[in-house]
C-alpha cells in the first residue's frame, strides 16, 4: 500500500499528512526530557483545593518563589474534591520523575482514615513542610465567658447545652473540637457548616455560641472587638494572639494545628527531592514568605524531607488511632 502510494508519486495531500506526522513527532521528541540536569522542563504543582483558598495561595506563592531557584516555570493546577483525596491520589499515580508535585495539606494524614482514598504519607515522596495554622476557640465579644475555663465550666453544667459551629464534619477544625470534648470531658452540640467563613457568619449573627477556626480566619472581627479568642489550641502561643493562653498552658493537652507542605510521587530519586527541598528552603527564607504568613495568620515553620516524613507519619498514626474513637464519643 505504502509502496504503491510512493510509486504513484507523492500527491499534495500525502505530503501534507507526512509533514503533519513529522511535526507531531518533533513535538513529541521536544517534550521528552531527561537529557539535561533536573529540572529541564516546567513543573506541575497540583493543588487539592479550589482557586483562592489558603492552600491555593500557599501553592501559587511558593511556586513563584521556587521558580527562580529552579530556573523553570512552575504551573499550578487545581484538582479539588473529596477533602483533597482526588488530588493526592492523582499525584501519587504520576511518574516519579520530579515534574509533578502536590500541595500536602494536613488531609494527607486523614483521607485514608475517612475512607476517601487509599493514599497517605507512607506512599508519597514528601519534600518539606512550610507552615502551620493552629485552631482557636472564638465566641462573641458580649458572650458571658471570659476565659477558656468559663467556657468549659458552662459546657460541663449542661451536656450538649452549648452550640459549636465548625467548617464541616471531617474537617480539621471538627477534629479539634472533638479533641477538646475528650480532653475537657465536656459535650457540645455541633452545627457543621460548609467552610469556616460561614460558621463565623453564623457566630457573628448570634445563631451559635462558639466556633473553632484557624487563627487567621477570625482575626478581622477579633481586632474590631466583635469576637474574642478564648484559647489557642496548640502547644505554643500564636504570634497573632500573644495575650491568649494555649490549651496546653491551661492543662488540656490537645490541639491539632493544620499545616501545609509539598510532596512528589513515591519513588522520586532522593537527589531530586533534595534539589526540590533546597529550592523550597530558599523560598521559605525570603521575606515575602514571612510577610504572607504574617498576613494570613500562618506560622512559618520549616521541616526538611526527613523530618517532615517522620512528622506526617506520626500525624497519620495519630488520626488513624483517634478519629474512629472520637467519632463515637458517647453523646
Amino acid at each position: 500500500m505504502l509502496s504503491r502510494m510512493l510509486g504513484q508519486g507523492m500527491n499534495r495531500r500525502f505530503a501534507v499528512v507526512q509533514a503533519l506526522a513529522a511535526a507531531i513527532l518533533l513535538f513529541a521528541v521536544s517534550c521528552r526530557h531527561g537529557d539535561g540536569p533536573y529540572p529541564s522542563k516546567e513543573l506541575k504543582l497540583i493543588v487539592q483545593a479550589s482557586p483562592g483558598g489558603i492552600s491555593d495561595t500557599v501553592s501559587r506563592f511558593m511556586g513563584s518563589l521556587i521558580e527562580k531557584d529552579l530556573g523553570v516555570p512552575v504551573v499550578c493546577e487545581n484538582k479539588p474534591g473529596a477533602s483533597g483525596a482526588l488530588a493526592f491520589s492523582y499525584v501519587a499515580r504520576r511518574a516519579p520523575d520530579g515534574y509533578t508535585l502536590g500541595h500536602a495539606s494536613i488531609e494527607i494524614a486523614v483521607v485514608r482514615t475517612l475512607g476517601y482514598a487509599d493514599v497517605g504519607p507512607d506512599n508519597m515522596g514528601l519534600i518539606c513542610l512550610v507552615s502551620k495554622t493552629p485552631a482557636v476557640l472564638v465566641v462573641r465579644e458580649e458572650a458571658p465567658w471570659n476565659s477558656f475555663e468559663d467556657f468549659i465550666a458552662a459546657a460541663r453544667k449542661q451536656r450538649g447545652g452549648l452550640i459549636l459551629a465548625h467548617a464541616g464534619t471531617g474537617s480539621i477544625w471538627h477534629f479539634n473540637a472533638l479533641l477538646m470534648e475528650q480532653a475537657a470531658d465536656i459535650r457540645v452540640t455541633y452545627v457543621p457548616y460548609g467552610g469556616t467563613s460561614r460558621s463565623l457568619a453564623s457566630l457573628l449573627g448570634g445563631h451559635v455560641d462558639a466556633v473553632i477556626a484557624g487563627t487567621g480566619e477570625a482575626i478581622a472581627n477579633v481586632k474590631a472587638g466583635r469576637l474574642k479568642v478564648l484559647a489557642v489550641l496548640d502547644e505554643s502561643r500564636s504570634q497573632l494572639y500573644p495575650e491568649t493562653p494555649t490549651s496546653h498552658e491551661l492543662g488540656y493537652n490537645f490541639g491539632a494545628p493544620a499545616w501545609s507542605g509539598f510532596f512528589a510521587p513515591a519513588g522520586v530519586p532522593d537527589a531530586i527531592l533534595e534539589r526540590l527541598e533546597k529550592a523550597f528552603r530558599k523560598g521559605f527564607a525570603s521575606s515575602k514568605w514571612a510577610r504572607l504568613c504574617r498576613e494570613r495568620g500562618m506560622e512559618a515553620v520549616f521541616m526538611g524531607r526527613k523530618e517532615f516524613r517522620e512528622f506526617a507519619l506520626q500525624e497519620a498514626a495519630f488520626f488513624g488511632r483517634e478519629i474512629p474513637q472520637l467519632l463515637t464519643l458517647e453523646r
Binding site: 489558603i54 482575626i219 466583635r226 504572607l292 498576613e295
Partner: peptide, 27 residues
C-alpha cells in the same frame, strides 16, 4: 464590612486584599 465573603468571587478577593496588607472587616 464583615470580612466574610458574600459569594465565591468575593472569597477569592479577600485573599487578594490580605496579600496587599488590607484586612477586610469592620475596621
Amino acid at each position: 464590612t464583615l470580612g466574610i465573603p458574600g459569594d465565591a468571587v468575593s472569597a477569592v478577593l479577600i485573599g487578594a486584599l490580605l496579600i496587599h496588607g488590607i484586612q477586610p472587616g469592620p475596621l
